[in-house]
Design a protein around this nucleic acid. Structure first.
Lengths: 369, 369
DNA sequence: GCTTGTACTTGAAACGCATCAAAGGGGCCG
DNA sequence: CGGCCCCTTTGATGCGTTTCAAGTACAAGC
């Protein structure tokens, strides 16, 4: 059970220590037969290089760290997926840590990654937009995801206000006269969505709009409760268009409406916001505005690579994705494929439905860059 | 931007190198004022311990590695969640790597973790049940998840055959006369489920059973296709109970049936298997048999801890979860809470529905340990 | 004032590897 | 046969820590 080290391999193979190291890192420098001999010895002995020692001696690691607030949120997974693919493309590993909605853990893992000689670190921070300024002064490139920081530093974020606008315009296009927004704007992202909705509706004073707070956590249960409440109203006081600030909320609303015998989208249309597969890859797809999580992850790694390759101190650099596109029912197959988390199945259904104009089953990726 | 090291802190604080190290690792050994001085210096300089050096010098790391085949599968997330919580409970970190359905990557990350002086490593392997025997001889504790290995080694796996049995018994209890199993038994797990179904039905020769292959990847689109095909049959040739070997498949089937105007569960009942939130946290919950992912992750860490604490060479040790329980529509609130990935909302709906006996919306966690 | 003990602190020795200047070996040309 | 050059291999050095035996300072007891 004693760990076999490089010197054991060297002794056993009858070569020197440096040669074995070369076999691992610069195989082209060795005579093929020497290389073969060493590799055989390595396998025979079950040698496994000690990464700590490598990193200590060698410097960088060709690996990135990613700290996520939760793993069970589709958006975070899209980020992880995009980051992973981009990282592999550059020959980097990606290690993921789950902060479990705990700032202390987030900080902990961040420091951990920083100290592991990671080539770069990315975070999807949970709370403060101007997060831990000290971190941006660290000797390791860092990129913040899905959040706008005013502090100097790199970040990649979606334009949430635009998402709100897109949803509102969708509602307008569908002829909505009474829009109900469901959800608590507990985070900056959600606040911006509400703002976008209001801005878009400012041009249409004839459309009635109300915002219903959905309880502390914006759960599907909250959505269900509000949906039930809406269903209980007299028909002429019911909205004809409900916006869930979150797909999960929207999903709850739909369940309630359907349970109470109200047709969706026949009597009430419902749209969500998040592009959260957890909510819409069930049996009933959901209209949603998807922030480009995959793209955010990808661009995050690109920013990391940029910092690494220039070796320049991080200048202020921000990327905002998703502010330009506005088409609502169009589905760009290419974009969906790039997301990878989206099943081909959904693509099929989405395009079918989009052409038949029933937006309650269309999937909007308009906010996609 | 130059990295500040422990010697910088020592010099700046006017103490010796070893004292700073003690401040980090054995603060109780220092005079409070010395400790305070050092901590201030650390913060002022922004010192971050080099994990590689620590690990190299110190030995173990109090952290576990977890290699998953994909991140977008709910089951894997449950594993991650369970492993994470259990690990934190013991004061360990958990780092996750995404093998992206690629054996080479899986192997790569595994070796990477092994070499990083992780205290232990867990894998949810993709393919061969007797996986890389060489790995089990490594000096780092390893546990295989969700798979039965005949090789010596530790593993935690769900009893997939029992899951099949449970589903079949559910069908029988619902008075099924004609059961259609949808899906390709591409993996050992799925094969066992089919086996379980057959075994349970062997006692009921009067019930007709057919298995329909669902294309290579068991996607929702495959399920949809088969659902459409079933819907197109004359009514008397249609099954009254469809089992998706996978929740995703079942979800596709339901979509197709509903689209074609067939009532679910009115005319045809549909059940899935996986406990995959990606499939059932949409607007229409799905009957499913959930392998206890959370519990598997938890037990995996427990096995790791056991190996670490005994410091004994890994004896053969297997845990199988889920073979005993069989209740189908009962929902144990406590169990669901422990899963953490399940939203309270679903719990509410589930219990409501369970009491009204409409199994198409009940959630089964009977396979939970 | 000397001894013994206690409470901290010190600094040198590993930890396992990558690096790189230098040495070795062989072929080729003159 | 000697000199050169190129290809390959060598092994000492240092990476930033932890650890631990050895050291220092100070207090109490005689």
């Amino acid at each position: 059970m004693a760990k076999v080290k490089i010197s054991d391999v060297a002794r056993e193979a009858g070569v020197s220590l440096g040669t074995v190291s070369n076999a691992l890192n610069h195989p082209e420098k060795l005579r093929p037969e020497t290389l073969k001999l060493i590799n055989e010895t390595i396998n025979r002995l079950g040698y496994l290089p000690n990464q700590s020692a490598r990193q200590l001696a060698g410097g960088a690691t060709k690996s990135f760290g990613l700290v996520l607030p939760r793993l069970d949120h589709g958006f975070s997974l899209q980020i992880a997926s995009g980051a992973h693919n981009e990282a592999r493309k550059h020959g980097y590993d990606l290690l993921i840590a789950n902060a479990d909605n705990d700032d202390i853990l987030e900080d902990h893992y961040l420091r951990y990654f920083m100290g592991t000689q990671m080539s770069g670190v990315m975070v999807q921070p949970m709370a403060s937009p101007d997060w831990h300024p000290a971190m941006t002064k660290m000797p390791v490139p860092i990129v913040h995801l899905d959040i706008h920081c005013s502090e100097p530093g790199y970040y990649v974020a979606a334009d949430n206000e635009a998402q709100g606008r897109i949803i509102a315009e969708l509602a307008i296009a569908r002829g909505a006269r009474h829009i109900t927004v469901v959800g608590r704007a507990a985070f900056m992202q959600l606040t911006l969505r509400v703002l976008g909705i209001h801005k878009a509706l400012a041009l249409h004073p004839d459309i009635k709009i109300e915002v219903i707070d959905a309880g502390e956590w914006n759960t599907a249960a909250d959505g269900y409760g509000i949906g039930a409440q809406i269903a209980a109203r007299p028909a002429d006081e019911r909205p004809d268009f409900v916006v869930g600030l979150t797909d999960v909320l929207a999903s709850g609303v739909i369940s309630a409406l359907v349970d109470k015998g109200i047709a969706v989208p026949g009597q009430v249309r419902v749209a969500g916001c998040d592009g959260n597969p957890l909510a819409w890859s069930g049996s009933v797809p959901l209209t949603t505005v998807a922030p480009p999580g995959y793209e955010i992850g990808r661009k995050g790694v690109q920013l990391l690579m940029e910092q690494i390759e220039n070796k320049a101190p991080a200048k202020i650099k921000h990327i905002r994705v998703g502010s330009a596109a506005r088409t609502v029912t169009a589905v760009a197959a290419e974009d969906i494929n790039r997301q990878e988390l989206v099943r081909p199945f959904l693509l099929e259904r989405a395009s079918t439905q989009a052409s038949s104009q029933t937006d309650a089953t269309a999937i909007n990726l308009g906010a996609y860059l």
